[in-house]
């Protein structure tokens, strides 16, 4: 059991981060408001989680302006994708053993 849990990724411990990753792996990119609508998180909460994922090197941030409005889009890095898949596999294995 402990062995299986070893593959659980610390970066995805929070459900919000796992949710963010699951949206980003199926979408090429997603902007801040899109994520906010889907996950029903507050601005502050979402940006904190996004920063954590960015620091972990799992998410790539792109800031640009549409007219005068800032538009920040997020996408997963290859490392993020791999880590997410591994975490999901571990989760699946864990459930199977129960």
């Amino acid at each position: 059991m402990k062995d299986l849990l070893a593959h659980f990724n610390k970066a995805f411990e929070s459900k919000a981060r796992l949710s963010i990753m699951s949206v980003l792996v199926v979408n090429e990119s997603m902007n801040f408001n899109g994520l906010k609508d889907l996950l029903a998180l507050t601005d502050g909460n979402l940006s904190t989680h996004l920063r954590a994922l960015e620091d972990a090197g799992y998410v790539l941030v792109q800031k640009q302006f549409i007219g005068r409005k800032p538009n920040t889009t997020y996408q997963t890095t290859d490392a993020g994708r791999a880590a997410f898949t591994e975490h999901l596999n571990a989760l699946e294995e864990f459930i199977k053993t129960l």
């Binding site: 459900k15 796992l18 949710s19 699951s22 949206v23 792996v25 199926v26 979408n27 997603m30 899109g34 889907l38 996950l39 999901l88 989760l91 699946e92 864990f94 459930i95 129960l98």
Partner: peptide, 20 residues
């Protein structure tokens, strides 16, 4: 353990809902 199963279900729904 139930919590993990629920997490997986939610992930699946999010993946589908966000891309379709």
């Amino acid at each position: 353990m139930n919590e993990h199963l629920q997490t997986l279900t939610e992930i699946r729904s999010l993946m589908e809902r966000s891309s379709k």
